[in-house]
Structures are given as structure tokens and as C-alpha cells.
């Protein structure tokens, strides 16, 4: 069954996180008004992105960018027809019509730019079709791109507090690393400012304290941490309240301790229902 929703409610970066952590293969279709785009993933990594009205065929794209002659393009297309399984990208490299690194660089740049444009959408329907694969003639990357990298770049383009406040309601919250962030951080190119914040994360300091120590504005620190958060590198937690209070001004009673024998009785009762 496809996953459907609107990116107004469940953002593109949230979806990318789900694709990454869920190790998903399939296609995310996005649409609004007369615009449409399809992002294809293989085991949680991006392999291609195609926007409506943009070139959807890798040879056309490379000819347009001056990386391939029309004759070479025809040669690759012909070779691919005779080889049922391989993508045109793979054939191009096999035939030495373009270097693997060069192909990766050109396609990655093109695909990333398409994705970054999508981060600018404040709303749009999405539909994720599990298992759907791109046409073999599409501009498929030979080395898939990890999505953390896309998330960070996408978040850099967010400049509204609204989105950020949703996840970071206050600057009194503490930032801490999630398991093994350095492993994950490898796929990400951090900007100098982002490194400054990254280096200050210690599981004790609040966002306000980090802003103070780095001499950066609260907004900039929150925006950067929001990026880390969305990419799944860090967590933000409320500082534990010293004495929990009810709004009525009464301190909240301790969580009730309950006896095992009592729990067992309830379990047996419900089992028997």
C-alpha cells in the first residue's frame, strides 16, 4: 500500500528520514498544481529524481550538458536495448563513453538541485510507492546519495521559525547526540557555522547556552540544530523539571508504584475477556 499525505503536514525532510531509517526502496511522487516530481530510492538512498518538464533520459541530459555527442548517446541507447538488465548509466561507463566519477558528479549535481527545489514547497501531495523502480534510461546514479546530506542542505533553505518551533519549542532544551553520530555525520558536508554548533553539543548545554558560547543568534543555532535533528544526528530534550507541578499550582504526586501481584491480576483478567 502506498503511503500518502501532504508535505504541509509531514515535511519532505521527515519523509527522507523515514526512507533512510526504514531502508526503503521505491518512489516518492510529489505534486502540487501542475508541478510533479518523482524521487527514487534504493535501500534508503536516493538514486534519481525526475521533475515533470525536465529531461528524464540520461543520454538527453548528458548531450544537453555537452558531456556526450548525439552519436555516443545513440550508441549507448542501442547497447542498453541489447542488455536487458543494465541501466543506461551503467552502459555509458561500461562503454567508456564517460568516466564513472564524471558521470556521478554531473548527475548528482543535477539530481540534488531538483531535490533542493522541492524543499521550497510549503505544500503538496505525496505518495510513496514501495518497490517502484525508475526506467533504466533515467539519470540513475551509480553511487546512490545518502539522504542525510540532502536533508541538511534542504534545511539550510528553511528560514521560517514556524517549522523549527514545531520540533524545538524552546531554547531551554538540551541537545544531545544520538548513537554514533560521527558515523552518520560522515555523509554530510557541514558548513563552518554548523561545525561550531556541532562541536558544542555535549548533552548538557541548552540551545540558549550554545548560542551564547558560539556568539550566534538563537535563531541560527535553532535552525542548525533543527537540521541535525531532522537528519537524525541529535535529539533535543526538555530539561527535567525540578519539581513537577500541575497548572493548579499543586506538585504532582510521584508515579504510583504498583505491586507485581496486582499487575498480574489485571493481566489475567484482560486475557480472560
Amino acid at each position: 500500500m502506498p503511503l500518502v499525505g501532504n508535505i504541509r503536514d509531514f515535511g519532505l525532510s521527515d519523509f527522507l528520514y523515514l526512507v533512510d531509517r526504514g531502508y526503503k526502496t521505491g518512489c516518492l511522487h510529489l505534486s502540487r498544481a501542475d508541478e510533479m516530481a518523482s524521487l527514487y530510492f534504493d535501500k534508503g538512498k536516493l538514486i534519481t529524481a525526475i521533475r515533470k518538464d525536465d529531461v528524464a533520459i540520461v543520454t538527453d541530459l548528458l548531450v544537453r550538458k555537452g558531456k556526450l555527442t548525439p552519436i555516443q548517446a545513440a550508441q549507448a541507447t542501442q547497447a542498453q536495448r541489447n542488455d536487458s538488465g543494465a541501466s543506461v548509466s551503467q552502459i555509458l561507463v561500461n562503454l567508456n563513453l564517460i568516466g564513472r566519477d564524471e558521470l556521478q558528479r554531473v548527475l548528482q549535481q543535477h539530481i540534488e538541485e531538483s531535490v533542493y527545489l522541492l524543499f521550497g514547497w510549503s505544500e503538496g501531495e505525496f505518495r510513496f510507492e514501495q518497490g517502484q523502480r525508475p526506467e533504466l534510461t533515467a539519470p540513475i546514479l551509480l553511487t546512490p546519495v545518502p539522504v542525510e546530506h540532502l536533508i541538511m542542505e534542504g534545511v539550510r533553505r528553511i528560514d521560517e521559525w514556524g517549522r523549527i518551533k514545531d520540533r524545538i519549542p524552546s531554547t531551554d532544551m538540551v541537545v544531545k547526540f544520538i548513537e554514533q553520530p560521527t558515523e552518520r555525520a560522515k555523509g554530510i558536508n557541514l558548513a563552518a557555522e554548523e561545525w561550531r554548533v556541532f562541536a558544542r553539543i555535549n548533552g548538557k548545554d541548552t540551545l540558549a547556552e550554545i548560542a551564547h558560547k558560539t556568539n550566534m543568534s538563537d535563531f541560527d543555532v535553532c535552525r542548525i540544530v533543527y537540521g541535525f535533528l531532522t537528519a537524525g544526528l541529535v535529539d533535543v530534550l526538555r530539561k527535567p523539571a525540578p519539581v513537577p507541578m500541575l497548572a493548579t499550582g499543586r506538585p504532582l504526586a510521584e508515579a504510583p508504584r504498583i505491586k507485581k501481584s496486582l499487575v498480574t491480576r489485571i493481566i489475567n483478567r484482560i486475557r480472560g475477556m
Binding site: 504498583i258 507485581k260 499487575v263 493481566i267 484482560i270
Partner: peptide, 18 residues
Amino acid sequence: VKLVLLELLDVIMQRSED
């Protein structure tokens, strides 16, 4: 619904005392 409640009770059980 029973299953959900039983799973919750299982979590509660882990925090309960003898």
C-alpha cells in the same frame, strides 16, 4: 484492544515492585 492493553501492562510490570 486486549493486545494493546496487555503490552502496556507488560511495560508497567517491568516497573512494578515485588
